[in-house]
Design a protein around this nucleic acid. Structure first.
Ligand SMILES: [Mn+2]
Ligand SMILES: [Mn+2]
Ligand SMILES: [Mn+2]
Ligand SMILES: [Mn+2]
Lengths: 218, 218
DNA sequence: ACAAATATTTAGTTTTGTCTAAATTTTAAT
DNA sequence: ATTAAAATTTAGACAAAACTAAATATTTGT
């Protein structure tokens, strides 16, 4: 599998939300920042290789094998992210680009040794689960902060958007994974929230809340 | 710089023995396992990019800038080799292939953090020196075991050939970097040596001796 | 049901890196 | 100094991955 093919496989996997839903040519094009015509060419090739099922005008999804490949890539990507944060002191908003390169390194021994070095982590720095060697992983029970009723309390376990600007915002506002968050009040007008995090009360917009995952504890 | 360009730059660097000697098209082709015609195309491109100086039929060498690039690649390659051996318990004959991939990862921060994590190592698992961030490195004073007079004693500090078969041979015969070696006798007929390593006397062929570096101590 | 809008594919190029076969230059041998 | 051998370059082709422009299919709004 070439680097480019691998990135397409990951894109199809993520757009299908890990459930292997059919995704459209345009969706893939947007995700990959290429043109739809390039996507058509590539999904044909992936189809020929037995990695994807593609039907003209209907969209594409991964085969059983394709999903296996996707999970291996996701595993590698997230393990490298953990490595960068835990061993090389990268900030959580700095790891994505580099992991995007490292995920393509071909060596099963490398991946497994890395896993061991890191102590078999279950989640990456953004709270996303890391598939095990045989492709299993439990999808956490978590809810977006903006979909939870006032009074709910829980632990912040992940981010939906893991772009640098959003992660930097969280750093600046002292919100980190593992923090306990209590929803104090929700503003009718704009959906903004008043929440309590680590003793402090802060206000966050609906947009922020829509990108923070909570594991509800009570 | 693309992955392929980088590998050519490294090849030219190594064939020039780090001294930036002119190397021939055929030498590069052999090293890169490509055809001479492919090399011609590539060195033209490297020349256009200001990385190499190429003169038709005369050969190619790196520019000042090209050497800088080569040293960065060598630095990354060797740091990754140390990482694989020290942190992930790879054997010294297993690291090359993977380092060949890892050396192309683009992130200065990654390289420097890795260097720090490893404690700023001076040599890689094969005894080859690791250039510092600004491209400096001391070339060790070392001699090939087959070029040294009988009676010489020294520390084994490196290997010339770092192919898996040779390294495995050394493992099997309990010869490792850091060992003290004493040359007891040299056979006129075939150049084979009788040496003492860690209390034990062994015989090695001229071919083996020609690939082991010694730092002479007396 | 039909036209307009949108999505997707096809056809034809481009760039990168490779190859083979043929032409040319350099080197080595007489 | 020629000629044969070896090294190198050129010409032409191909596969991968991208693009643009044009053609076609699907969806949507009335
Ligand atoms: Mn990637
Ligand atoms: Mn992540
Ligand atoms: Mn390489
Ligand atoms: Mn090495």
């Amino acid at each position: 599998m070439t680097l480019s093919e691998e990135d397409y496989i990951k894109a199809i996997y993520h757009l299908g939300k890990g459930e292997n839903n059919i995704v459209s040519t345009n969706e893939v094009a947007e995700q990959m920042k290429t043109k739809p015509s390039s996507v058509t060419d590539m999904v044909k090739k992936l189809s020929d290789k037995g990695v994807a099922n593609y039907r003209k005008y209907k969209g594409v999804c991964l085969t059983e094998y394709g999903q296996k490949v996707a999970l291996t890539l996701v595993r590698k990507h997230r393990l490298w992210e953990v490595f960068l944060v835990e061993k090389l002191n990268f900030a959580w908003d700095e790891v994505h680009e580099v992991a995007e390169q490292l995920e393509h390194i071909k060596s099963e021994k490398l991946t497994d040794s890395l896993d061991e070095l890191l102590g078999f982590p279950q989640v990456d720095p953004h709270g996303d689960p890391i598939p095990s060697k045989n492709g299993e992983f439990k999808k956490a029970v978590k809810k977006l902060l903006n979909e939870v009723p006032v009074g709910t309390s829980g632990t912040c376990v992940g981010v939906k958007d893991s772009s640098a600007p959003f992660l930097k915002f969280l750093d600046k506002n002292r919100i980190a994974l593992g923090d306990t968050i209590l929803v104090l009040e929700k503003e009718e007008f704009d959906g903004s929230l008043h929440i309590q995090v680590k003793e402090k009360d802060i206000r966050i917009s609906d947009q922020i809340a829509a990108n923070l995952y909570l594991k509800i504890t009570e």
